[in-house]
Amino acid sequence: MSLVLDSVTKRFGSIVALDQLTFEVPRGQVFGFLGANGAGKTTTMRIALGVLRADSGAIYWNGSPSEALPRRTWGYLPEERGLYPRMTVLEQLVFFGSLYGLPKDVAAREARAWLARFRVPDFADRRADELSKGNQQKVQFLAAILHDPEVLLMDEPFTGLDPVNVALLREAFLELRDRGKTLIFSTHQMEAAEALCESVAIVDRGRVVVGGSLAEVKRSTGRRMVIIGIAGDHQLRWIADVPGARVIRPGIERSEVEVDEGIEPDVVLAAALALGLRVTHFEIADPSLEQVFIDHVGRPVDEDLRLAPAAPGGGSDRRSGGARRRQATAPRADGPAA
């Protein structure tokens, strides 16, 4: 009982969007589909939904090919949000529920119940164009789940939401999972994936570079992390003298230290104690999902959301001056980002 993607390939002209994409999502799990823009996440979802046709390979749900499944099997929250601006929220939800085969009265009842769960019962009779973007997004989420789909596909569901709505959405995810639904979402936000997902797949250029349970994926790089806190010392300069260990993320209370494969994390604790430092916290941990992504893909997941390094000597005089100034303060900015 699972969702299986079996060697799915899709080309758009000369561009290979999906290249033998293969992974499996166990039923009743929250699954993170992680990748940078253009990795093929939306294309995969569109093929599952039947909007696009795969060049080869297939997607199966509980053994049935996706083309043979009724549309109500899926709920879909697209990355691009949109509603009919002049329809009321209730009208829209009933309309979409009806398209998925829900009787009108059932759709209306479900819609009102979910609006109440999201603490916005008064939205029912308001037009979509009277709502904020975040609230429109909540309505879209309800449109995706109202017909009680078995599999929920969500493209960047947390983008554009404030922390309160992110928390509400996470709670809804977990509730749906507890009801036996399978949730698959794509995201750039590694923290969200770490907090919610039982299994993940990291995709790059249409291929799965690593996939499996969250613990397996995090251990896939062989890296080990130490989280350490030292009273009165947040710079941890002494770590430089510990072979195979380096500070990845310094912090006032606790810092993250990476330990090379083959080095026991205990050496960090031993070095601190040998120096007579007072250790307030010591924890052996897996690397963050973000670090795992960089290790496997070779660049951060949100690289395309950051400014590229300025070309040396390029552009106008003003730009060149700006580039020189940046180079002076950031000597590594002249090379490509890792």
Partner: peptide, 16 residues
Amino acid sequence: TEKTSRVMELMISAAS
């Protein structure tokens, strides 16, 4: 209008 408002994304998954 459906494309501009992006509601089309919901529509194409709900109906053929």
